[in-house]
Nucleic acid binder design. Structure first.
Length: 589
RNA sequence: CGGGGCGUAGCGCAGCCUGGUAGCGCACCUGCCUUGGGCGCAGGGGGUCGUAGGUUCAAAUCCUAUCGCCCCGACCA
């Protein structure tokens, strides 16, 4: 049993001025955390208790599917060079030198370290599958840490890695993680959604994110009101309402129209009296490609066509160009390709690559929404002119059609056609089929059944420990503070004697706390010599789900039980308290 | 990295424009009082005004540089 008067729980009446989101304000006000520097926080007593409980749950569930390791956070440069990520990670990686001048870095994830162990130690298919995990600090020099513990430079992560002999084995390891994550987040009392996620640049075959919907989040999830469809913004698709095409004019072939000074989609649509949906949006971008012979990096034009009212999704575009990054073309680059200033660009009159490998020609990517459309309006590649009657496939040949746009709220679900909603969310977990990227580049090999060398296939899986707590707070707070689900709360019950000067009140509170403690509950006795108002305010603030108030009614043998989330309050006889909490906190399963 | 803002007591802020005694609320300490929602009265402690340089008889205040922190954007295996 813990006594408040002996503890360091520095609660604050006011939130620090720079705190914006609820979890940040309350974590500081409730004395869970204190900031040391931008994106770097100390965890005080209550915070650490909460994290320890979260870690306990993660560990219990992970032990059912894998084995816990503890890996170094300090890594040699050579290790990250062996996977090629020393240069890829850029400024986000913390780097330092040792006394000999050797380069080191602080770990952002641990694929390299795990794969290094696998490479050295795994020899035979008989040793597979393996699932190895750890819970450890990760370091990322984020461009912009923010929102308290939501986006920080040092944080705790449960990261695990699976090694399987083949894709079917990976499917099993992946599913085990999926199920373990569901059990973990359920036990933590979170409401979450599992969404299909963008697999990233490396062509990983499958990826899911575990998201908690909250306004404080930085990610966007698209989900269906009716069925269980849910996806990350970078992955989501929708069914579109068909658009009525314009009638052909003149002989039906592309026809120049004078559109002086009409540069934006809206301008042109208004000027010509058509909907933006009948207009082609032409985006001029560049992608850096490596020349296969010289190895030199050469910029290559990538032109993207979208329906006029649609928005480009950069992650989808990146996937479409093989995981590379794109940038907008500069004015000279636009002139060189289109012979026209921006505002009047279009696909007609340029020789586009037949497929991506035809490197001497520019790439033309056309969004699926334009496939099969006819008589669209595009720029004419001539200042102050646009073209009517533009029909994809007839008037120009795309290098490829692809899904390139972001869905918007209200569009139809791809499965059941019900309206889609878009919410901001916090990512609390991510499971990812890595494939062969690390095992291949770092040279991990095992012998299969036939004595043939094969490369094990990997998965990697992460859980943000701090984000579980912040998401829980974002989900459950009011103007007075927050309440946590009992499994992750720093204490389950706070016993609040209203007046420790009253011997009867004091001793009953003491007895109740002792009893609850003896029965195995996590109890905090607020034995401070403070006025009741102060204690109630603090009790409401710090996230403890239940309060037992011991006050005047002790003379009648009665105390009050208050449930923080609902403010529900009822009198209970002193002798019945332990039984009551047995029922609500330890129900038989 | 681009744009904006802020650094004055533990927290929240005023003072700066117009240079001259460093202030307020909360918190903290002592005493009394009070005891069901941050109570009251009295007394008290605590600040190199982020740092460095400059202007001036005199700088929290004006100028320059620098560091830190926050917000928006870019970025985010």
């Amino acid at each position: 049993m813990h006594r408040w008067s002996q503890l360091f729980i520095p609660t604050l009446r006011e939130a620090p001025a720079d705190a914006e989101v609820a979890s940040h304000k309350f974590l500081v006000r409730a004395g869970f955390i204190r900031q040391l520097a931008t994106g770097i926080y100390s965890y005080l007593f209550l915070g650490q208790r909460s994290f320890n409980k979260i870690i306990g749950i993660v560990r219990e569930e992970m032990d059912k599917i894998g084995q816990e390791f503890y890996l170094p956070a300090l890594h040699p440069r050579e290790l990250w060079e062996s996977s090629g990520r020393w240069s890829v990670m850029g400024d986000t990686m913390f780097r330092l030198k040792d006394r000999k001048g050797a380069d080191l870095c602080l770990g952002m994830t641990e694929e390299e370290v795990m794969t290094e162990i696998a490479r050295k130690e795994l020899r035979s298919y008989k040793q597979l599958p393996q699932i190895w995990y750890q819970i450890q600090s990760k370091f990322r020099d984020e461009a912009r840490p923010k929102s308290g513990l939501l986006r920080v430079r040092q944080f705790l992560m449960k990261d695990s890695y699976s090694f399987d002999i083949d894709a079917a084995g990976l499917d099993v390891s992946y599913q085990k993680h999926h199920d373990a994550y569901c059990r973990i987040f359920d036990r933590c009392g979170l409401k979450y959604v599992v969404v299909e996620a963008h697999s990233g640049a490396m062509g990983g075959s499958q990826s899911h994110e575990f998201m908690v919907r909250t306004a404080a989040g930085e990610d966007q999830v698209v989900s269906c009101e009716k069925c269980n469809y849910a996806a990350n913004m970078d992955k989501a698709t929708s069914k579109l309402v068909p658009v009525e095409d314009l009638a052909a004019t003149g002989d039906g072939n592309p026809l120049e129209v004078h559109t002086p000074g009409q540069k934006t989609i809206e301008d042109v649509a208004r000027f010509l009296g058509v909907s933006p949906k009948n207009k082609i949006k032409t985006l001029a971008l560049m992608v850096d490609e490596k020349d296969s012979k010289t190895g030199k990096v050469v910029p290559r034009p990538v032109v993207v066509l979208l329906r006029g009212d649609h928005q480009l999704n950069e992650a989808k575009l990146s996937s479409a160009v093989g995981g590379k990054e794109t940038r907008p073309m500069q004015a000279e680059e636009i002139e060189r390709l289109f012979w026209s200033p921006a505002g009047f660009l279009g696909p007609i009159g340029i020789e586009w690559a037949r497929d991506v490998r035809q490197v001497e020609r520019p790439i033309l990517l056309v969004d699926n929404a334009l496939e099969g459309r006819t008589n669209l309006i595009s720029g004419a590649n001539k200042e102050d002119y646009h073209l009517k009657n533009v029909t994809p496939g007839r008037d120009f040949q795309p290098t490829a059609y692809a899904d390139l746009r972001s869905v918007t709220a209200g569009e139809s679900c791809p499965n059941c056609s019900a309206p889609l909603r878009i919410d901001t969310a916090v990512e609390i977990g991510h499971i990812f089929k890595l494939g062969y990227k690390y095992s291949e580049s770092m040279g991990a090999r095992v012998l299969d059944r036939n004595g043939k060398e094969v490369t094990p296939i990997m998965g990697s899986y992460g859980i943000g420990i701090e984000r579980i707590l912040t998401a829980a707070i974002e989900q459950s707070n009011d103007e007075n503070g927050f309440w946590l689900p009992p499994p992750i709360a720093p204490f389950e019950i706070v016993v609040t004697p209203t007046n420790v000067g009253d011997e009867k009140v004091k001793s009953v509170a003491e007895d109740i706390a002792q009893q609850l403690d003896a029965a195995g509950f996590e109890v905090l006795l607020d034995d401070r010599d403070e006025r009741p108002g102060v204690k109630f305010k603090d009790a409401d603030l710090v996230g403890i789900p239940y309060r037992v108030t011991v006050g005047k009614k002790v003379t009648e043998g009665t105390v009050e039980v208050v449930r923080r989330s609902t403010r529900e309050m009822h009198d209970a006889s002193i002798g019945a308290i332990t039984g009551y909490f047995q029922q609500v906190l330890r129900p038989a399963r």
